[in-house]
Write a protein that binds this DNA or RNA. Sequence first.
DNA 1: CCGTTAATTAGCCAATATGTTAATTATAGA
DNA 2: TCTATAATTAACATATTGGCTAATTAACGG
Lengths: 108, 108
Amino acid sequence: MSDLPRIFAALSDPTRLAIVERLMRDGELPVATLREESEISAPAISRHLNVLIRTGLVRKRARAQQRLYSVVPETIRAVSSWTLDHRTFWEASLDRLEAELHKEMSRK
Amino acid sequence: MSDLPRIFAALSDPTRLAIVERLMRDGELPVATLREESEISAPAISRHLNVLIRTGLVRKRARAQQRLYSVVPETIRAVSSWTLDHRTFWEASLDRLEAELHKEMSRK
DNA sequence: CCGTTAATTAGCCAATATGTTAATTATAGA
DNA sequence: TCTATAATTAACATATTGGCTAATTAACGG
């Protein structure tokens, strides 16, 4: 159901990542507001939003002429789940790093 | 230091994602082994591995004619950290989902 | 109903990504 | 030293991405 490569692809564009982060922080926002923090044209933003819609990262809602966008938490959670699935891997390395730090400390 | 968009871009290709997952599961592996599970040519794999190297997701080590690749845990942890930075966001939705489930249960 | 605001769609172009086959580099081992 | 093995680099074709301007759609407000 959650197509991880497509989600990663959607998040791989700096403009789109910024949009997603902004929406996670501030909740639902209209296109005009999202446009403020990047230099690019309205049509470009529109297409980026479309990519995010297609991958299920955001949803759209109409209010008058505005279109309000917000993040779909479940899709973000898919990314989180992926990292947790491999937690044992990067956690092990954390332990090693920590051990290294302790060694360093006791040496001084 | 950790360029998230580039990391996401590297993971957005199914072949590369499969390589990273395989390496996380099995540890250090030579190119020939990684090649087994995908249909594409050796040069293609080689270039994918190069992308992973450049983004800091894997490292390479020589042993005879072989080149052994392994995942760099710190870089994977960068992805994990990103999701954790926004945990409050998707966690809130988890709570809501859970609440919904409880409502559902008590109704029956 | 007409003008303004908000956003999207259409059409176009340049840059990047991904795959292929052929050629090259490097090492092992008889 | 010659051959086989392992991987990479070179050269090329094609598809996708991402940007722009101009045109279009939709809704509000006088």
